[in-house]
Amino acid sequence: MNATQYWHCFIGIQTREWLRFWQQRTRFASALVRPLLWLVVFAAGFRAVLGISIIPPYETYITYETYIAPGLCGMIILFNSMQGALSMVYDRELGSMRVLLMSPLPRPFLLVTKLLAMGVVSIGQVYVFLLLALLVDVEPPAWGYLAVLPALILTSLMLGALGLLIATWIKQLENFAGVMNFVIFPMFFMSSALYPLWRMNEASPWLYWVCQFNPFTHAVEAIRFSLYLEWNPMAFGITAGVTVVLALLATTGFRPQRTRILGTA
């Protein structure tokens, strides 16, 4: 296979994801309700309780809305990736996974392309969310919207790969409720999405360390720093490293040896 064929395949997978997105646009719009509730209602209630000091990358006191916006960007990607990955492996998309795997191109290429395509749709939602966040005065610098893009792509790849890994290896979690309780909520709450980690450290040092080991924390920090035009090599490095490991593991789940789930009725 030559590079042109890879390119056609890449574009074909992207196009399909966008076409499906367009077909289901009402569902995607309703998926925005969740982060907006957090931003508008939860943040309003908690603003007074928490109070935020000046921490990097912010240069001044910020509102609680401003603090949680990057975490909510992460949350959008987290939900979408898990939902997308589950549907890739179970029921609804099983047929289309088979079609995907019938391609003569290498499976790791197909899966990473598919994850990227799903990620692009999530990222579209993140940008809509960030635009709406302007209404509650979450105003990152204009260039921040561009600078945050690599962090968003990386996060969507990392979480997509994690979702695939979970969907292919852990049978017990085959419904979304299970993933919600055992993956999404723990990852989200044990991270820096809703509270700065120094506060967690004051409350419970061991929880602080759990948060530190949670890759989602670093994805959120990578988003936060780049949105405010600051470079955070540690957050980026950890997110990128975890992405590579998870993607490698996830693609092994689609070797023929492991695809029993795709093989027979």
Partner: peptide
């Protein structure tokens, strides 16, 4: 194994793209 919401042609194009 078809995408029911996509058109016939879109389904075919997706498959063709997968084959380069």
């Amino acid at each position: 194994a078809l995408d029911l919401d996509l058109t016939v042609r879109q389904n075919l194009q997706y498959h063709a793209a997968l084959h380069g």
